[in-house]
């Protein structure tokens, strides 16, 4: 399922909304999550999962082709932990 298919589905379930509004809604949700993570906040959606940001320290890496050592800056990476309910749903009946 892609973002546009998600929008399509929502529009079908909500015939009273303009497709354009459904698009704005979906975009607003993911933008809000992005903005929170960019502030360093956690996003916790019970039953679904939690998004957080992890810091990776600067390190000395290596160019795997030449073997030269290169400085890798500190960076932040987004992380998602699946919620218990969703995890259980994925494994229900298996």
């Amino acid at each position: 399922m892609t973002k546009s298919e998600l929008i399509q589905r929502l529009a079908e379930h909500n015939p009273h909304l303009y497709q354009r509004d459904v698009e704005l809604i979906v975009t607003a949700i993911f933008d809000e999550i992005t903005a929170a993570l960019a502030r360093g906040d956690r996003v916790e959606l019970r039953g679904f999962g939690a998004f957080s940001v992890k810091r990776r320290d600067a390190r000395l890496g290596r160019n795997p082709r030449t073997g030269d050592s290169v400085h890798v800056d500190e960076k932040h990476i987004p992380f998602f932990k699946t919620g218990k309910q969703l995890r259980d749903r994925l494994n229900a009946g298996s």
Binding site: T34, L37, A38, R39, G40, G49, F51, V53, R55, D73, E74, K75, H76, I77, P78, F79, F80, T82, L86, R87, L90, N91, S94
Partner: peptide
């Protein structure tokens, strides 16, 4: 055996986070 969910962040998301936090 089980099924696990993996999330891969897009470059846009990674870049936004790093532009701000780093």
């Amino acid at each position: 055996p089980r099924r696990v969910l993996v999330f891969r962040a897009s470059h846009v998301l990674k870049d936004q986070i790093n532009a701000n936090l780093t």
